[in-house]
Design a protein around this nucleic acid. Structure first.
Length: 555
RNA sequence: CGGGGCGUAGCUCAGCCUGGUUAGAGCGCCGCGUUUGGGACGCGGAGGUCGCCGGUUCGAAUCCGGCCGCCCCGACCA
């Protein structure tokens, strides 16, 4: 039986809430799919929940297909489990106590709980295992935003693989990656699978699935030739080559009074800013000062620098800088520095202008290796116009949504939880784990970001709330009913929304466009003159007039 | 957590600066009528602790203080 719009809780809005910025946020609210309860807290209304469930269905099929076993872990979790993993100290973990003052957490993902259960695995004969659930996650996000894009509570499909060794993990990881590709393909998404930053999950390798979208929070570097895509937090790119001035046999001092910026320096010397270097003194968590060095036109990338330092850091203060290097910001350089120099790869080759560690003096012709010793690492921010490391093509940057993230955890959790098994030689070994997450709600938002026009959402067939939307114009109730029934035969039970509301045609059309079901069928006096109805495709706008009986076999 | 902005009807907003009838508009909602293929029109109507608490004042949506909530940017972040 078709769903009747007259009885459906489907509060569509003519105006979007004033504070909604992201396209998906605006359309989800306007289309009556979701409503906000608090910052980062959303209720899925009937239509929104249908879409969510369709995405859940796709994920379930694909994870089942790689041998996943669905189960369900509780949300409320004894804090003790999180003490064991050490994650209870993360600030985004919600913590609470019961009446007896026992401590609990609301998990942001379920590694601890799944690993707790994995302790019951005993033999290599049982491996590998892939377990998953659609679990509610809570995160004390510093800043929820963009409707469903970043929220404080959401449902996530998280799966966990348990293998006997690294080779097994590689296999489980690869199978998940393949399943993820099928899932996002089926959802009609354009996405890139890229190396990623493991973040707070811990573990070695991790891969992100990023969907380019106007409202994304990640930044994707893409090659014009389509052979490279990476998150700029880890992307390695080839910077454009500087125009170097003639090489010198040794560094040469130049007076640069009052010049402390790269722009001023390049202008003063009449050289390419790319042929200069700039030094950023930072202090590691243990108090050591390190001189970060990047090319003059580049910017230091925090995440990369932190990874290269192997420690958190803060910018050094003026006083610390003077004490360590003998000059102020703007005149710093690697030559003669007594602290560790961490230089960007771009500075390996060539001669650059650098600060002389004396106020108002620079050195030209400074060459790594010859004039100073440095440790090299990729610590620069990727920029628009950089060259592709694979083919040399031009890179562009665009915002993207993180759809899913998969990690090789190794024994990060199995060891503290004593989740071990016996191998065939009777030796006890820790399980080698992987974890894999997808947020259906965020995926839903990403689909809208990629599939909409100025009238509303254009759902891909696989995730549309209804396959067909029947617009019943006044005076043709019976025929509209017949059309809806015929459509259910071809499109499936429950796949039809029948707009039987007492509303004007324009209003119904506008709502149909907003809600975005793939097929709209209009039944009205005009079409029925010869016993037919109008069938219109949301994507293309193509319309054809067909007899109601033809609807029974509609694609 | 830092910066900025906002909080008045279901939604979008005016009124606040310069305190003073009964707090307004458009959309939406209810009733009646005319309409009826791209958000109609007329008439009638319902709907408000002006975010909360306190202060100033004869009098506060309006001025002052505190708190709460929400949005955006940054920090942070699957």
């Amino acid at each position: 039986m078709a769903t009747r719009a007259s009885q459906l809780f489907l509060p569509t809005l003519r105006d979007a809430p004033a504070d909604a910025e992201a396209v998906s946020h605006r359309l989800l609210v306007r289309g009556g799919f979701v409503r906000q309860v608090g910052a980062g807290l959303w209720t899925f209304l009937p239509l929104g929940w249908r879409v969510h469930q369709r995405i859940v269905g796709i994920i379930r099929e694909e994870i089942d297909a790689i041998g996943g076993q669905e189960m369900l872990c509780p949300v409320l979790t004894p804090a003790e489990l999180w003490e064991r993993s050490g994650r209870s100290r993360y600030p985004e973990v919600f913590k609470l106590r019961d009446r007896n003052d026992r401590q609990f957490v609301l998990p942001m993902s379920h590694e601890e709980t799944f690993t707790f259960h994995a302790a019951e695995l005993q033999s290599y004969r049982q491996l590998p295992q892939v377990w998953y659930h659609f679990g509610t996650k809570d995160r004390d996000e510093p800043r929820p935003r963009g409707g469903l894009l970043r929220v404080r509570e959401f449902i996530m499909k998280d799966s966990y693989s348990f293998d006997r060794d690294e080779a097994g993990l590689d296999e489980s990881f690869a199978r998940h990656a393949a399943a993820y590709r099928r899932i996002f393909d089926r959802c009609g998404l354009t996405y890139y699978e890229v190396e990623a930053e493991p973040g707070m999950m811990g573990g070695s390798e991790s891969r992100d699935f990023l969907a380019p979208a106007g409202s994304g929070e990640n930044e994707l570097a893409l090659c014009e030739n389509g052979d490279f895509g990476a998150d700029t937090e880890v992307a390695r790119a080839v910077p454009t080559r500087p125009d170097f001035p003639p090489a010198l046999d040794a560094p040469e001092e130049i007076e640069t009074p009052g010049i402390t910026t790269i722009e001023a320096l390049a202008r003063f010397l009449g050289i390419d800013a790319r042929a200069t270097s700039k030094a950023m003194p930072v202090v590691k968590a243990d108090g050591t000062l390190v001189l970060g060095l990047v090319r003059g036109d580049d910017r230091l990338h925090d995440v990369k620098l932190e990874a290269a330092l192997g420690s958190a850091f803060r910018p050094a203060e003026e006083e610390e800088i003077r004490r360590a290097l003998g000059a102020g910001g703007g005149s710093l350089g690697p030559v003669g520095a007594t602290v560790e120099v961490l230089a960007d790869e771009a500075l390996r080759e060539g001669q650059f202008v650098a600060g002389a560690n004396r106020d108002g003096v620079h050195l030209r012709g400074v060459q790594a290796g010859r004039d100073y010793a440095a440790r090299f690492a990729d610590i620069r921010q990727v920029r628009e116009g950089d060259r592709c490391p694979a083919c040399g093509g031009r890179l562009s940057l665009q915002p993207a949504i993180e759809l899913g993230h998969i990690f090789k955890l190794g024994t990060r959790y199995s060891e503290p939880f004593g989740a071990t098994f016996l191998d065939e030689t009777g030796i006890e070994r820790p399980l080698v784990m992987g974890c894999y997450g997808i947020g259906p709600g965020r995926t839903m938002a990403a689909v809208i970001e990629q599939h909409h026009d100025d009238r509303g959402i254009v759902w891909p067939d696989a995730v549309a709330p209804y396959a067909a939307h029947v617009v019943a114009l006044p005076g043709v109730e019976e025929q509209a009913e017949a059309a809806a029934q015929a459509l259910e035969q071809s499109l499936g039970r429950g796949a039809v929304l029948l707009d039987d509301r007492d509303a004007r045609a324009g209003e119904k059309f506008a709502d149909a466009d907003l809600i975005g079901c793939p097929i709209r069928v209009t039944v009205g006096r005009k079409t029925l003159e010869d016993g037919r109805v109008d069938v219109r495709r949301r994507v293309s706008g193509e319309e054809e007039r067909l007899p109601i009986s033809d609807l029974e076999t509609l694609r």
